[in-house]
C-alpha cells in the first residue's frame, strides 16, 4: 500500500474530528462574514414589510425537530418582523411535534430578558380592557397602558393575543385543514392551541378565511410546504412564501419563476439573509442565530471542498484512475 492509497483509506474518524473542530471553533471565534441578501429572500421580506395592522399573515411551523436548526431562525425572524409592523399573525403546525417548536419560537420572541423583544399579553389577561369595548389596536394599547401596564426597558412593543397573534396549533390531516380554511378558519379551529374561543377574537373577525389573509410563510423540512401552494394558492389565491432547508431549496426554484410562490428562504443562509434585511430595516439591533451559524457553515463547506480536492489529487496521483479505466475496459 503506497502513501496515496493509505491517505485514501484514512480512518473516517479523523474526518469526523475535523468536522467537529470546524463546527465548534466558530462559536468561540466569530468571523462575522458579510451576508448579501438574494432576490428570493428580499421578495419575502418586502412583502411582509409592505403589510400593516389591517393585513394578516400565516406562519406555518411545518417542520419537525430534525430541521429545527435551519427552520426555527426563519420563523423567529418573520415573527419579529411581523410583530414590529403590528401585522396580525396566525401560527399553525403541520406536525404534532411542530406545535412545541412553534411555542419555542414564540417564547424566544417574547423573552423580555433579550432587548428588542416583545411583551406577550395573553387573551385572558386583557379581558378587563376588552370588556370595556374593543375599538382597534391603537386604542387597546392606550387603554392597556392607561391601566398601569408599561413596557419593560428595551422591549419593542406589546403583542396582544387575539389581536396580534392567534396560535392555532396542530390539527391532523393539515392539507385538508388548509383546504377548509379557504372557506372558514374558525370552522377548522373553533379554539386556539390554548383552548380560547377563536370566534371572539378580533383577529378572526377581521380575517375569516384564507381569502382575507395576505401571506402564508411555510417553514418546512419536507414537501409539507407544497400543501399551501396546492390548497392555498391554487384554490383561493393565497400568496405563499417558503422557508425550506438548503437541500430542498433547489426543488422550488420553478415555483418562484412561475409566480406560484412569492419568494423563498433556503436553509440557514436564507434565514441569515432575512436577519440582515431586518437589521438594515431597523427592526432588530443585531442579527440572530442564523447569521452566527453562517461562520460554521462557511468553514464546514470549505473543509468538505478541501477533502474532495485532496481525495481527487490522491486518486489521480496514485494512479487509481488508470486502474478504474482498465476495469471499465474489461
Amino acid at each position: 500500500m503506497n502513501n496515496w492509497e493509505r491517505f485514501l483509506n484514512i480512518d473516517r474518524r479523523w474526518i469526523y474530528l475535523l468536522i467537529a473542530i470546524v463546527v465548534i471553533v466558530p462559536f468561540f471565534i466569530r468571523m462575522g462574514l458579510p451576508v448579501v441578501p438574494t432576490q428570493e429572500v428580499r421578495s419575502v421580506y418586502d412583502l411582509v414589510d409592505s403589510l400593516g395592522p389591517d393585513d394578516a399573515i400565516f406562519i406555518g411551523w411545518d417542520f419537525d425537530p430534525g430541521t429545527e436548526a435551519e427552520n426555527q431562525p426563519m420563523g423567529v425572524a418573520v415573527l419579529r418582523h411581523a410583530f414590529a409592523r403590528h401585522v396580525p399573525v396566525f401560527v399553525t403546525a403541520y406536525w404534532p411535534l411542530a406545535q412545541g417548536l412553534a411555542e419555542m419560537g414564540l417564547a424566544s420572541v417574547f423573552d423580555t430578558r433579550v432587548p428588542g423583544n416583545f411583551v406577550y399579553v395573553p387573551w385572558a389577561e386583557w379581558e378587563s380592557v376588552r370588556a370595556a369595548g374593543y375599538a382597534g389596536r391603537d386604542s387597546l394599547e392606550s387603554a392597556w397602558e392607561a391601566a398601569g401596564n408599561s413596557l419593560p426597558e428595551g422591549a419593542r412593543g406589546w403583542v396582544f393575543e387575539g389581536v396580534d397573534l392567534a396560535n392555532l396549533g396542530y390539527l391532523p390531516y393539515f392539507s385538508l385543514v388548509i383546504l377548509g380554511m379557504g372557506t372558514s378558519i374558525a370552522n377548522q379551529y373553533p379554539t386556539d392551541a390554548y383552548g380560547n374561543n377563536l370566534h371572539d377574537m378580533p383577529i378572526l373577525q377581521a380575517h375569516k378565511n384564507l381569502r382575507e389573509v395576505d401571506l402564508a410563510v411555510t417553514l418546512a423540512g419536507s414537501t409539507a410546504c407544497m400543501s399551501w401552494v396546492v390548497y392555498g394558492t391554487s384554490r383561493v389565491g393565497l400568496p405563499v412564501a417558503f422557508g425550506v432547508t438548503a437541500v430542498m431549496a433547489t426543488d422550488y426554484f420553478p415555483y418562484i419563476q412561475s409566480g406560484q410562490i412569492v419568494g423563498m428562504m433556503g436553509g440557514l443562509r436564507g434565514a441569515a439573509e432575512y436577519e440582515v434585511l431586518e437589521t438594515e430595516g431597523g427592526y432588530t439591533e443585531t442579527t440572530g442565530k442564523a447569521y452566527r451559524g453562517m461562520d460554521v457553515q462557511s468553514l464546514a463547506h470549505i473543509l468538505i471542498i478541501l477533502l474532495v480536492i485532496l481525495g481527487n489529487i490522491a486518486y489521480f496521483a496514485g494512479g487509481f484512475h488508470k486502474k478504474t479505466a482498465m476495469k471499465n475496459r474489461r
Partner: peptide
C-alpha cells in the same frame, strides 16, 4: 454532516 464529509472524500471523484 459527518457522513457527507466522509462520503464526499471517498466517493466524489472526477472519473
Amino acid at each position: 454532516a459527518f457522513y457527507i464529509a466522509s462520503a464526499a472524500f471517498r466517493a466524489f471523484r472526477a472519473k
